[in-house]
Amino acid sequence: MNSTFFASIAATGFAVAFLHAALPTHWLPFVLVGRAQKWSTGRTLGVTLLAGLGHVALTIALGLALVLAGLALQPALGGLFHLIVGALMVAVGGYYVFRGRHNHTLPDAGRRTYASDRAAIVALVTLLTLSPCEAFLPYYLAGMEHGWQAFVLLSGVLMAATAAGMLIFTSLSLAGFKRLGLHWVERYEETILGGALILVGLAVAFLKT
Rank of each mutant, 00 (worst) to 15 (best):
residue 2 N to Q: 14
residue 4 T to S: 15
residue 4 T to D: 15
residue 6 F to A: 12
residue 8 S to W: 12
residue 8 S to T: 08
residue 11 A to Q: 06
residue 11 A to E: 03
residue 12 T to F: 02
residue 17 A to Q: 12
residue 19 L to K: 08
residue 23 L to P: 05
residue 23 L to Y: 10
residue 23 L to F: 05
residue 23 L to H: 04
residue 24 P to T: 05
residue 33 V to F: 00
residue 34 G to T: 01
residue 34 G to A: 08
residue 35 R to C: 02
residue 36 A to P: 05
residue 37 Q to D: 03
residue 38 K to T: 05
residue 43 R to I: 06
residue 44 T to Y: 04
residue 45 L to C: 03
residue 46 G to A: 15
residue 46 G to N: 05
residue 47 V to Q: 03
residue 49 L to E: 05
residue 51 A to H: 03
residue 55 H to I: 08
residue 56 V to P: 02
residue 57 A to L: 12
residue 58 L to H: 06
residue 59 T to P: 09
residue 61 A to R: 10
residue 65 A to S: 11
residue 65 A to V: 14
residue 68 L to I: 13
residue 69 A to N: 00
residue 73 L to Q: 13
residue 73 L to E: 07
residue 75 P to C: 12
residue 76 A to K: 05
residue 78 G to A: 11
residue 82 H to K: 15
residue 86 G to V: 02
residue 89 M to E: 04
residue 92 V to R: 11
residue 92 V to D: 13
residue 94 G to L: 10
residue 94 G to P: 05
residue 96 Y to D: 09
residue 97 V to Y: 15
residue 98 F to K: 06
residue 99 R to C: 03
residue 101 R to Y: 03
residue 105 T to P: 05
residue 106 L to W: 07
residue 106 L to A: 09
residue 107 P to E: 14
residue 109 A to D: 12
residue 110 G to P: 01
residue 121 I to W: 00
residue 121 I to S: 01
residue 123 A to L: 07
residue 124 L to I: 04
residue 125 V to Y: 08
residue 128 L to F: 10
residue 128 L to D: 01
residue 132 P to M: 15
residue 133 C to F: 08
residue 133 C to H: 13
residue 138 P to L: 10
residue 141 L to G: 09
residue 143 G to Q: 05
residue 143 G to N: 03
residue 145 E to A: 14
residue 146 H to P: 04
residue 146 H to F: 08
residue 151 F to P: 03
residue 152 V to W: 14
residue 153 L to G: 14
residue 154 L to C: 06
residue 156 G to S: 12
residue 157 V to W: 04
residue 158 L to M: 13
residue 159 M to I: 07
residue 159 M to Q: 09
residue 161 A to Q: 09
residue 161 A to F: 03
residue 163 A to S: 14
residue 163 A to W: 12
residue 163 A to N: 01
residue 165 G to H: 03
residue 166 M to L: 13
residue 166 M to P: 00
residue 170 T to F: 00
residue 173 S to N: 12
residue 174 L to C: 06
residue 175 A to Q: 14
residue 176 G to T: 08
residue 180 L to T: 10
residue 182 L to D: 14
residue 182 L to I: 12
residue 185 V to C: 01
residue 187 R to Q: 15
residue 189 E to M: 13
residue 196 A to N: 09
residue 196 A to V: 03
residue 196 A to E: 01
residue 199 L to Y: 15
residue 202 L to M: 04
residue 204 V to L: 02
residue 206 F to K: 07
residue 206 F to W: 13
residue 208 K to M: 11
residue 209 T to I: 07
residue 209 T to N: 07
